[in-house]
């Protein structure tokens, strides 16, 4: 692995996206539009203040999961990954390069979504906006890391899209948006407590309500960080230089 090759890869991924303006527009605008829609649906009820923060956790995660898993699958199928792996390219360079590039996109995407949610949709944020950013970025990186992992198990575009429900929906269902986790059946509550998106949702809710201190939130970010590192390690193990 070398920082030069990692940065070259991140730069190349960003360059590819820059050459595709429609993708940039979709990446940056769609989350805000959906948050606006949810705010509108629950207009004049207290519901948006409760689930609004969770929405901020969901979008960077889902979008980055999809974008990353498809981008990596394209590399596998177009032969570019095979070319790279026959070159002096570390597997870590490849994965970290993607993580860096999409992490940066996630920061921009989150900035727009948070700005829109707080200024236009009047979402209350009690804690510092900085903490909110930290959580959302961790969340987006989690999406990137899991997307890389998922693409290793997909052979076709059809499969990789099907992996979204597999990796993402259970986390949404068990994360406490629909029903607070402590009201779930015991087994599901335990599972939910170990899923990373639950902690992202907890952390963002805490940021917006101000019911918990910063240490509580950082602990949640740390938990997500462990998942990210785990997914990156497993992802780089599934990235084989030699394939059958």
């Amino acid at each position: 692995m070398s920082p030069m090759r990692t940065l070259a890869t991140a730069g190349r991924v960003l360059l590819q996206i820059r050459n595709d303006p429609r993708t940039i527009a979709l990446l940056l605008v769609v989350p805000s539009l959906l948050i606006g829609l949810v705010a509108w649906i629950f207009d004049e009820t207290p519901v948006f203040d409760r689930i609004g923060p969770a929405m901020l956790a969901l979008f960077p995660f889902i979008v980055m999961f999809l974008v990353t898993s498809i981008a990596t699958l394209r590399e596998r199928r177009s032969g570019t990954l095979e070319r790279l792996l026959s070159m002096p390219m570390g597997r870590g360079d490849f994965i970290l390069g993607y993580t860096l590039a999409f992490g940066l996109l996630a920061v921009i995407q989150t900035a727009i979504a948070v700005g829109y949610a707080t200024w236009v949709c009047r979402l209350e944020i009690e804690e510092s906006v900085l903490l909110l950013f930290a959580v959302a970025i961790a969340d987006a990186l989690l999406g990137t890391a899991l997307g890389l992992l998922a693409s290793a198990f997909a052979r076709t575009e059809f499969q990789v899209v099907q992996f979204m429900p597999v990796f993402v929906f259970p986390q949404i269902l068990l994360g406490g948006i629909f029903l607070p986790r402590d009201q779930l059946p015991d087994v599901l509550e335990t599972i939910g407590d170990w899923l990373p998106l639950s902690h992202a949702i907890d952390a963002l809710t805490a940021v917006s309500t101000g019911n918990e201190d910063a240490a509580y939130i950082w602990l949640r970010i740390l938990f997500i960080g462990c998942w990210i590192i785990g997914a990156i390690i497993v992802g780089s193990l599934t990235l084989r230089r030699r394939t059958p």
Binding site: R12, L15, Q16, N19, S78, G79, T80, E82, R83
Partner: peptide, 9 residues
């Protein structure tokens, strides 16, 4: 055998 280059670059 495939061109193995990035189409969007």
């Amino acid at each position: 055998q495939l061109a193995s280059i990035y189409e969007d670059l």
